Computed example of a mutant assay.
Amino acid sequence: MGLLRTIFIIVLVWYLFKVLGRIFAPILMRFAAKKAEQRFGDQFEQFRNQQQRTEPKKEGEVTIDKIPNRKASNKDVGDYVDFEEID
C-alpha cells in the first residue's frame, strides 16, 4: 500500500509541476526578457555617454588605447621535426 501511495504522490506532484509550469513559464520569460532588455539598454547608454565624452577624432586618425604585453618567445622549447605524408 505504501508503494502505491508513493507512486501516486510522485505522479500528482509531476502533473502539478507541469500545470504550474505552463501557467508561470510565460510570466517568468517576460520578466527575464524585460531584465535583459534593461541591461542591454543600460550598457548601450553607458557606451553612448562614453563616446560623447571623448573628443571627436579626425577621419583616418589612429589611436592605441592599450599596448599589448610582449612575451619573449622561448627558443629552447624543442626540436622542429619535418613530417612527410605516407600513402
Rank of each mutant, 00 (worst) to 15 (best):
Q38T: 07
F44D: 10
R39H: 06
D42H: 04
G41F: 01
E59D: 11
T63E: 08
D82M: 03
A32W: 01
E37P: 00
A33C: 07
P68M: 02
N49Q: 14
K35N: 08
E61A: 07
N69M: 05
D82K: 03
V62A: 01
Q51I: 12
G41Y: 02
N49M: 13
M29S: 08
F47R: 05
R48K: 11
Q46H: 10
Q43Y: 07
R30W: 05
G60I: 00
E61S: 05
V77M: 14
N49P: 01
A32D: 03
A32F: 04
Q52R: 08
D65P: 00
M29Y: 10
F31S: 10
K34D: 11
K66E: 14
N49R: 07
K71A: 11
M29P: 02
Q43D: 12
R53K: 15
K57D: 05
E37R: 00
R48P: 00
N74F: 11
D42S: 14
R48A: 15
N69E: 11
F47L: 08
R39S: 12
R30V: 10
V77T: 10
K75L: 14
K58G: 08
N49H: 03
P56S: 15
Y80V: 15
G60P: 00
R39C: 10
F40D: 13
D79K: 06
Q46P: 01
P68E: 01
Q43R: 02
Q50F: 15
R70S: 13
N74P: 01
Q46D: 13
R30C: 05
K35A: 06
V62E: 02
T63R: 09
D79L: 14
F40P: 00
N69A: 07
D65Q: 08
V81F: 03
G60C: 02
G78R: 00
V81M: 05
D79Y: 12
E37S: 04
D76E: 11
K57F: 14
Q46T: 14
D82I: 06
T54I: 14
G41W: 00
G60K: 00
V62S: 03
F44A: 12
K35C: 10
K35G: 04
I67D: 01
Q50G: 09
A33I: 12
R53D: 10
